[in-house]
């Protein structure tokens, strides 16, 4: 690997945000998080992860690594067996749940699970309305969120009449409307055709938000996230610039991650 010195982090390094400096406020702070399901299956064995504000991080890992379990801890749907989660400095606990869920914008994998209201507008309004926003302020939030994902013209449509890519974008808008501290996306590129995948990438790059993106899609991680962490068997197995992690074939193989045929992360500069 003779090009090591010239290697750039994947994605747009210029807006990668401060990292490792210690001064930047942390959007997300997970410390020693362990969790076992009631049936005894232990999914997480002490996860440590810090994400400074404004950074986009990919959470990589094979199926069964505990990615979804970890994500469900971030907004308190699952409660840590040990360890702690803080979002923007606020610890996840019973009495902070409402605020935590406003701060963590979770975008689920299947937009049909996320979009449960009869129209797009009502769905985007659901989160802020639960937080007590009403009237003109609510309208403005909804319009703004839909504009940010390029779906403003679809407010009065029922979600099931939209294409899959459009539904995924509306799903992103539903959490943007809550003005989150961090956007957490579960497999955002799953089931998208190449054009929808690119459109979503452009939207995510334009957001200027802290993002944690759970994915198997390594090229997508490289495109969008300067930094990646690998979650494997319930612990963080690697943490570093995405381009470096993806160039380490041994590391990927050990954690059942694979690049698509013909894809060379060293060549995929942008």
């Amino acid at each position: 690997m003779s090009t090591t010195d010239e290697r750039e982090p994947g994605g747009r390094s210029e807006d990668a945000g401060p990292r490792g400096g210690g001064q930047a406020p942390l959007s997300l702070e997970v410390a020693g998080l362990a969790f076992a399901y009631p049936d005894g299956h232990q999914a997480l064995f002490g996860v440590d992860l810090s994400v400074p504000r404004g950074e986009r991080v990919a959470l990589l890992g094979p199926n069964g690594a505990g990615k979804t379990t970890l994500v469900l801890h971030l907004n308190g749907i699952l409660t840590a067996g040990a360890g702690s989660v803080r979002v923007g400095g606020l610890p996840v606990a019973k009495d902070t749940l409402a605020e935590i869920r406003r701060r963590v914008g979770l975008v689920f994998q299947d937009p049909d699970d996320q979009l449960f209201m009869p129209t797009v507008r009502e769905d985007v309004a659901f989160g802020p309305a639960n937080a007590g926003v009403r009237g003109a302020a609510l309208e403005a939030r909804v319009t703004r969120a839909l504009e940010r994902v390029g779906m403003a013209g679809f407010a009065d449509r029922p979600p099931h009449h939209l294409s899959f890519g459009q539904r995924r974008r509306v799903a992103v808008a539903t959490v943007l409307a809550m003005d989150p501290e961090i956007l957490v996306l579960d497999e955002p590129s799953a089931n998208l055709d190449p054009a929808a995948r690119r459109e979503l990438a452009e939207i995510l790059l334009s957001l200027d938000l802290t993002v944690l993106m759970v994915t198997h899609d390594l090229p997508y991680a490289l495109e969008l996230c300067p930094r990646s962490v690998i979650l494997s068997e319930g612990v963080i197995a690697a943490d570093g610039p995405t381009a470096e992690l993806l160039a380490d074939e041994d590391l990927l193989r050990r954690h059942r991650l694979e690049l698509p045929f013909g894809f060379d992360p060293r060549a995929a500069r942008r």
Binding site: L72, N75, I77, A98, R101, R102, V104, L106, F108, D110, D112, D113, Q114, F116, E122, A125, F126, G127, A129, N130, A131, R134, L138, T174, V175, M178
Partner: peptide, 22 residues
């Protein structure tokens, strides 16, 4: 699916009642 939808609702601050918007 019902369970997943419920999770999605909780994630956006659902606390047992639907907000009346219209």
């Amino acid at each position: 699916r019902g369970e997943r939808v419920h999770l999605a609702m909780l994630s956006r601050g659902y606390a047992g009642t639907m907000p009346v918007i219209d």
